[in-house]
Structure formats: C-alpha cells, structure tokens
Design a protein around this nucleic acid. Structure first.
Lengths: 143, 143
DNA sequence: ACGTACAATAGTAATAACTACTATGAAGAA
DNA sequence: TTCTTCATAGTAGTTATTACTATTGTACGT
C-alpha cells in the first residue's frame, strides 16, 4: 500500500508536482481506505495529524489526483462527491438506506459501449455503472 | 404528449396534489423536451410565460414529480442535477466536451444486478449506467 | 549545507445549487 | 360563494466547492 503511494508521488514529481506531507497523507488515506470517503471525511480524518490543514488543500489535491488519473471521483446523488483510489476494474453497490458503498467485481460492459457507440455515433471513452438497493444489514433491520 | 401530462396530473390529484398552471407548465416542458434540462434551464425557459415564477417553485415541483415517480433525477458530475421525464427503459450517453446527453436503448442489465446481489448480499432495487465519450459533432470539430 | 525560485498551503471570501421559511394567493370541495 | 388547505413568490439560509492572496516550504542547483 505505502509502496504504491510512493510510486504515485514519484510519477507526479515528473510533472513538477512536489511532495508535501499533506499531499502524502491525503493520498495514503485514500489508498488505505475502502470506504470511498468524501472531501469532508478526509478533512476530519486528517485533522488530528494536521490541525492547521485547510479544506482548500483537500480539494486542491483531490482535483490534482483526479486529473492525474490516480483517483476517481464519484458523484452519488444528493450530497457531496466521493473519491476512490482503487483503480482496478470494479463497480459499486450503493445502499439507499445507509449510503454505504460496497465494491463488486464484474467484467467490463464493453458490449454496451459498443452498442451505444453504434446507436449514438459517440466515440466512447468509458462508462459508469452502479447498483442501488439495500445492503444486507439494512435489509434485516428495516422492514 | 399533452394527454400524458393530463394523465400524470390526474394521478397526482388522487394524492391531494393540486393542478396549478406552473406545475402543468413544468411537467409539460419536461415531457416535451428531450434535452434533460436542469432546474435553471426550466426556470429560464418558463420565465417568459411566468415572469413571476420563483425558482423555489421549480425545485418544489421537481421534487414532487421525482417522489411521485413521474420524473427521474440525473446527477451527472460537476454541475447541477438534470431531469428526465422519459420513463421508458433507456440509458444515456454523455459528451465530455459539450455536455450533451443522448438517449440510447439497450436491454436492462439484469445479469449485473443478479451478480451484484450475489456478491454483495444487497437486495437490488435498480441500477444506473451511463456512457461517456465524445458526441459525433464534437468528435469532428475538436482535434 | 545554502540560497533561490516557484509551487503549495492556510485562511478566508466568493460562488452556485439547492432548501427552509413565511405571508399571500389560488384550487377545489361543500 | 365560501372555506380549507395546499401552492406560490420572495427571500434568507445552508452546504459543497472554488477563487484569491499572502506566506510557507520543497527541491534543485551550487
């Protein structure tokens, strides 16, 4: 885990991006976390270690990571963006009750991309797919 | 088209929802439009006919329609929500350059829902899928 | 090690989408 | 027509995110 953070930062350094403690902390947190945190959650999580860190720094770095292709931004419905540093092929299942996001694997939907390209004339670059429902714990708790 | 607006409003009336000119106009506009407008676009489009209409009214009614299942809310990335009154089974292709949203048909991805349910333990209620890329006109214009 | 250049940070102000609130006005039943 | 109640307009408030600027810190060259 920590190794790939180093690797990612090396890769950034090539483009004139400097390595700062804050940047390192944000990326590490994202890569270690499986919970697809929001900017605010990252802010709160790192506040103890960086009491003077600004929210703007979080946003700046998240945007940087997204532009560098190290992190993916998820815009799920009503509230704030979530961020995912897991670049492997996977999709998300989102609980409508508790908001939890769970990863699941499935072969990429290339068929759909092809069909869409044919029907719309688009040059397809990618797609996004999510499953909505109730997670197992919400399912047993709620009626 | 106009007939189904009437039908929809009849259906709403059963739940104590009144039929107002503004409400009618918003729903008609949505049902006639194929462009998946934002709240602000609807506001601007109806302003000539309803110069005194409030943005709050737009949002109130959109929420009402969404809760009644007459309209679907699309949260595409950075900017504001878009709304779609086409309830038939279809997906969206979104141009990364101009932001245009084009409908395309494809059989519902029930296989994925089943697989996700099996892997995550979710009770699946639905899914969302979009294709991202360049529309045909942006593709020829841009390099 | 030291100095320098320039990117990054902190802090705050600004923006934008959306929601909450309240007094007035209109739908629709009796 | 009259009354009840929901809807609207207008505005103030909230929240996520961005813009801006002075200061700080990184990393490269020496």
């Amino acid at each position: 885990m920590a190794a790939s953070v180093q690797l990612a930062l090396e890769q950034l350094k090539m483009n004139g991006v400097r390595m700062t403690p804050q940047r390192h902390a944000i990326l590490s947190y994202l890569m270690d976390s499986k919970s697809h945190p929001t900017a605010d959650e990252i802010y709160k999580a790192l506040s103890p270690a960086f009491p003077s860190m600004s929210v703007a720094t979080i946003y700046n770095n998240l945007r940087l990571f997204v532009e560098a292709g190290l992190v993916r931004e998820l815009t799920y419905g009503d509230d704030s963006s979530r961020f995912d540093a897991d670049l492997s092929d996977h999709y998300h299942a989102i609980c409508k009750s508790c908001g939890q996001i769970v990863d699941f694997g499935y072969p990429p939907l290339l068929e759909v991309e092809k069909a869409a390209s044919k029907e719309t004339g688009f040059t397809v670059q990618g797609h996004r797919m999510e499953i909505y429902g109730l997670c197992s714990s919400c399912n047993t708790t709620a009626k």
